[in-house]
Write a protein that binds this DNA or RNA. Structure first.
Lengths: 373, 373
DNA sequence: AAGGCAGATGTAAGCGCTTACAGAGCCGGG
DNA sequence: CCCGGCTCTGTAAGCGCTTACATCTGCCTT
């Protein structure tokens, strides 16, 4: 036994040292009064050394058994496995990470988690990451004071990072990270050299706008801030393009954040006549729903008096009357692709030069003026 | 320089070794053709050794500067800081974890992430965990084949684990984990000795049911499976209690899972007359909304023909007409408390013996029969 | 009968950090 | 002038794993 092993076994251990040479008597090393059940010994802090000891083999063999690598005889394998669950051994991930020089974890940075968009993205990301054997460490930027610090801290524990919306990540941090760890930006402006994946926006927005125009509406208004996020910017561009294609000049956008509260305010401005429109093309469903609901409460008829369309196809959009016409994004897929790319990058693949763009789909319901199905 | 350092510095390094004794010339050690910008050297894999080298100090000093521990003169501190960002050094979390013997991470296991419930819980959890300096590693059980394996794998990389709904975690795994790492169960049956935190159910359910009864409804039906989850079980118990208090005997529950699809089926059974009810007390809002919407489409008037109430107060419940009467849970708080407890447990606090129960609140809107405000 | 080889296991050298402990200067008081 | 006690920095011993390499059996070839 080397000095190293001794250190690992006895010296410096504060917790009740697991039976060093007990044969197989379970629940014998327990010092905490946990009742006398025939459960495995609660040997908190069992290490590969204690397992090896108990099984009467070297730590290398234990490792081989646990990793399924190398050749180990079946009798030895069994001895090790027995020792493992007698001691209720849980390996220390950090030690493995250090040795293999991989965290085997991906980081995901999201602004927050309200609404189905982020959740679905996260689900897609997690599921693919899990398939690839990577755990996912989540960070929400909302309400975080020192974002840069938080991201740097995250970088410390993962192999690669996906960030939703470039706005969430200060450019400086992004640059620092980039080059150190693979980074992919989801639905954000691809910064110089940073890989990105997003959903198609401009074309669907054009289609959607065209559809509304085809209903004979003439005073469309775009609700949302094109400069707030690249996604919105593109949607607005599509909105404009659809007008141009008909030789029309669209009114300027009503710049508001896309949260519920903003919707109420916009509705008031419509009711007061400040905003004159017979159709609203909203930056997302949340906004569209809030406006529509508020307008209806005030006695306006949607779509007769005013049409309203959104973006995202959240659950609520199916339930309201009339159903909200909107655009469905492959959100889950976005998460999957991000996780996939991260993994490839970690495995040595070079960054993709052009952004990866996933298709979207216009979903027609009643709020645009179409007859309810 | 010790043999160890040599190993760390040159031997065994596959990546282009960062300038070992370059003075301050940035971008000089670059071997990859990354264009000639005056950016920090893209020294992927800088370690505490390279930083120490560059700064002309020992690794201990670098560590001290970075951890803010011990006393370091300001000139030295500055040298180290300079080296850090010249090399764009990102510490390796695993190495720190190994040395300090803490992962500084909490695990959270959720079944999935649909609907606002889980998201909000997660947000609460993440925010508190972040405040406490812990990262959060998320695992979704949905669709995972070998759950036990996945959980064990998670246990490998975190200090403590919170699990939502005991059903998500096989009892055997729970028991194995428990005793190794602190575990808290959120909104689930507290298994023997495992700490748990949840929202109040029975009493609010009784209040809610009583409210519906007070509207003069007589044929209430509980929709949802009381045996599906402890939460639902308690809500059903409250439902029964309210009846008993009036000397009534409630009809048996309509046992269905609480997803959207089940709602449509239930609605059909109501329309066909198979289920006879003048009020529905649903296990959650999702179910209630699906049923209400389906019934309305078929021409039924809610609440006149039939009242519907739910549970959770999801966003949609505010937007539908009539607004859904429901019960609001302190979901965010649940997450916060779980993170908090985990951290205390990691810091040595003993497990709480009794479950921690957070209060809920009945939210009256129109679907129960009350006049819309 | 000797050599060779494959299978099973052990040995030991790291992985990149933290931190107890040990110096090295330097100052002021005796 | 010496010494105790600062302040600042370096030395080195781990933390618990993985894995290249060495070793040791047998058994098969020739």
């Amino acid at each position: 036994m080397t000095a190293r092993q001794q250190g690992g076994q006895s010296a410096g251990r504060a917790v009740g040292a697991p039976s060093v040479n007990a044969s197989t008597a379970p629940a014998a090393a327990s010092s905490a009064p946990t009742s006398a059940e025939p459960a495995p010994a609660p040997s908190v802090g069992a290490t590969i050394y204690s397992v090896a000891d108990r099984a009467g083999v070297s730590i290398a063999t234990v490792s081989r058994v646990l990793q399924g690598a190398g050749t180990v005889s079946s009798t030895t394998t069994q001895k090790v496995l027995d020792a493992v669950d007698q001691l209720n051994y849980v390996p220390l991930g950090a030690a493995r990470s250090l040795a293999v020089r991989h965290h085997e974890a991906h980081g995901l940075v999201l602004p927050e988690l309200t609404g189905p968009y982020y959740s679905e993205l996260l689900m897609g990301f997690e599921s693919r990451a899990a398939e690839l054997g990577q755990s996912v460490t989540l960070m929400l930027t909302g309400g975080k004071a020192d974002l840069a610090r938080a991201v740097r801290q995250l970088a410390t524990r993962v192999d690669a990072i996906a960030v939703l919306g470039s706005a969430a990540m200060p450019p400086a941090v992004a640059r620092a990270l980039h080059g150190q760890k693979p980074v992919v930006i989801i639905a954000g402006a691809g910064q110089e050299g940073i890989e990105s994946v997003r959903a198609e926006n401009a074309h669907s927005a054009e289609l959607l706008t065209e559809h509304v125009l085809a209903h004979g509406r003439a005073r469309l208004v775009f609700v949302g801030d094109p400069d707030g996020a690249p996604d919105i910017h593109e949607r607005h561009a599509g909105f404009v393009a659809a007008h141009r294609a008909r030789g029309l000049v669209p009114a300027g956008p009503v710049r508001v954040p896309f949260r519920e509260a903003a919707g109420d305010a916009v509705a008031e401005r419509i009711l007061s006549g400040e905003i004159d429109a017979d159709a609203l093309v909203c930056a997302n469903d949340e906004l569209a729903l809030a406006i529509m609901s508020h307008l209806q409460d005030a006695g306006r008829d949607v779509p007769r008096d005013i049409a309203v369309v959104g973006w995202d196809d959240v659950m609520t959009s199916r339930y309201v009357r009339p159903g909200l016409t909107t655009v469905r994004q492959p959100v889950h897929e976005l998460g999957v692709v991000a996780a996939e790319r991260l993994h490839q990058r970690v495995s040595g693949a070079p960054p993709r030069l052009e952004a990866q763009i996933l298709p979207t789909q216009v979903v027609i319901r009643g709020s645009c003026g179409c007859a309810p199905r």
